[in-house]
């Protein structure tokens, strides 16, 4: 996945450089500025993610959203998913483990959905781009939407 991204970017960069050196230089300058602008927020997010993942491991999570946890379990799963930020290639196998460990489909549906759509720790970055109001609205709506996802997944998978 990363390799494709690098190959495509590298090729475009070469084409761009071949066509117009000055413009390419300007593009790279813009890239750096845009990155440097958001770097402090990125670093905070990365530290917070480290702390959270150290505390919230699969053991802790499966205890909270285990069997028979019902709607309370769904709410807790949604809250945990909102706070944590786990890359998908870690989250999906983890969700499979949680299912095996006794978590219900409804809870897992809520967990996966908020995990991907709601980002409490990334809020400082989001606010910098979109402002407070939009960031809060987007996260709250995505949080509520996750309950619809949980409900439907719970119904279909049961």
């Amino acid at each position: 996945m990363n390799i494709t991204l690098y190959v495509v970017t590298g090729m475009l960069l070469i084409v761009s450089f071949y066509k117009d050196k000055q413009k390419t230089k300007k593009a790279l300058k813009k890239a750096w500025k845009a990155f440097e602008n958001i770097l402090p927020e990125f670093l905070v997010v990365i530290l917070l993610v480290g702390l959270l993942l150290a505390v919230m491991n699969p053991d802790v999570i499966s205890k909270i959203i285990g069997t028979e946890s019902g709607w309370l379990g769904v709410i807790l799963a949604a809250v945990i998913g909102s706070i944590t930020l786990i890359p998908g290639f870690v989250a999906f196998p983890m969700a499979a483990l949680l299912l095996q460990g006794g978590a219900g489909y409804m809870q897992i549906g809520a967990f996966i959905s908020t995990l991907m759509m709601v980002g409490v720790v990334t809020i400082p970055v989001e606010i910098k781009y979109f402002g407070k109001k939009l960031t809060i609205y987007r996260n709250v709506l995505a949080f509520l939407f996750s309950f619809i996802v949980a409900l439907i997944i719970g119904m279909v998978m049961a």
Binding site: N2, L12, T24, L28, K30, W32, F42
Partner: peptide, 19 residues
């Protein structure tokens, strides 16, 4: 992860912006 993914994303952005 950040070091691997972020540089090409931002370079693409710069190119998109210019071209």
């Amino acid at each position: 992860e950040m070091i691997l993914v972020i540089p090409p994303v931002f370079v693409l952005l710069g190119l998109l912006d210019i071209w």
